[in-house]
Nucleic acid binder design. Sequence first.
RNA 1: CGGGGCGUGGCUCAGCCUGGUAGAGCGCCUGGUUCGGGACCAGGAGGCCGGAGGUUCGAAUCCUCUCGCCCCGACCA
Length: 527
Amino acid sequence: MSPASRTRRKGNMSSSYVGIGMSVLPVILAPVGVPVPFRARLVVTPLMAESPITPREKDFATWYQDVVLQGDMAEPAEIVKGCMVIKPNGYAVWERLQRELDDRFKATNHQNIYLPLLIPESFLKKEAEHVEGFAPELAVVTHAGGKQLEEPYVLRPTSETIVGHFFAKWIQSYRDLPLLYNQWANVIRWELRTRLFLRTTEFLWQEGHTAHASHEEAMEEVLRMLDVYADVAENVMAMPVIKGRKTRAEKFAGAVHSYSIEAMMQNGLALQAGTSHDLGQNFGKAFDVTFQSKEGKLDYVWQTSWGVSTRLIGGLIMTHSDDKGLVLPPKVAPRKAVIVPIFRKEEERGPVMEVAEKLAKDLGAHIDTRDGQSPGAKFFHWERRGVPVVFELGPRDVASGNIVLKRRDTGEKQVIPQTEAVAKLAETLEAMQTGLLAKAKQRLKDNTCTANSIGEVEDILRAVTAEKGGGKFVMAHLKDDPANDARIKEFKASIRNIPSVDEFDGPGKCILTGETVDRRVVIAKSY
RNA sequence: CGGGGCGUGGCUCAGCCUGGUAGAGCGCCUGGUUCGGGACCAGGAGGCCGGAGGUUCGAAUCCUCUCGCCCCGACCA
């Protein structure tokens, strides 16, 4: 309601953790000077300008929140349940991801459209499984213009239904197909439990919606877009993923089959980073989307839908960041390099700034000219915001023709000639992008194991939580049967997907039914 | 919906048990000294203590109701 009634960051939200690994803190325990009788005065210097970050080891979930907050990525909206405000540093990352994705969508012949936010409630009900899946998380508009609406509108949780309606209007003939559309939009899902970026009531995403003349063609589309997602995840976000098919129990409500990319976070939990659905003719039938084939026969279209959301940013953070804050792969970093100018005396300012400005232009770097902030404070500032490279430039460097380059991921610092700065920056960004992916791949490998009995799977995963970590991807033979999914859920894990590429030992007996299945599936705890 | 935490300057909190008319640190503003990994000194601005009602001479503090936020769980494209 009123701004005055909003609450503050507190309780478990706050990191009550007091920083270590900072500078040495002189602690003076003494009555200083004047009358503070028998009251010890605690003087801690220097006082930290920005809050510390809870170490991953202590509490991974709190660490994540600290990184998001301190990295200036987002903050809870507080005045709106489960919603967040995406701040400039976070939104800029989203814009980078949007660009990378959108370019690939265009390259695969998709066009962007925009559909209404409000969907007539009856639309949701036209596909039985779809409404069942989404009903619990719908927000509904019942009043507008000062009157109760005859038919309520739901705030879109996804647009398959409204797309179905318009596809029916737009498609008559096989010549109209395929229809390859994408929408960048916000959606609302009334989730019980929210976490910044990972699951929020309102989130930003893109949803691709396509219609095809045959199932084969639709399936090609489903897998093509899954590949696009995997490409962006690995080659832009440096986040390795496992492509695969969802089990029947886990598929999208209304789909024939769903496919996903699954990433592993630093605590070993899985994150579904993107999905691509084979909708078959389900929505075609529900919305009467028909076309006349070359042979003159009337048939329902075959549809697909696919999406990734701002959740990707959560995945990005939990893949690369460390106890000092955000770490961003260069390809998604809004600012790739920042120059921190250093000068003691006023007369040093001119020469330092002159060189800084010239280099900033060559490097495409931002100069931190903020007054009243010491260089040290600036280093911490950019470090927690995940800037890949920070340059230090002081009188010493101006005199020697050098500049100090500090790399965010490794913390490595080196003095280089100014003339080599441009080349060295490019080289460092490249190395960092590659290094982050390699590190994440290694972590995925190190935390993936096989299991050959349900007891073994349960032993490995039972105690895993988002806070304590210790998660693994457990590869086991398991039949795609909702009863088996239910058994896995008993210890709060789930079948993440059935990998498209089998990197293990091929067929084996299902650990629950004994039937032969063709490969191992990924079982893990997830967000 | 269950369990827990909590609403006090911009932020993090103390004060509440044992009512007496609001504090600290950070941040912010001014001036000066500083500046190579979170600087310091001095001065200053800023709060109807989430809301409503009650008890009382007097309420941030006690009582009742209410609104909301965060964390954990159940749920989950």
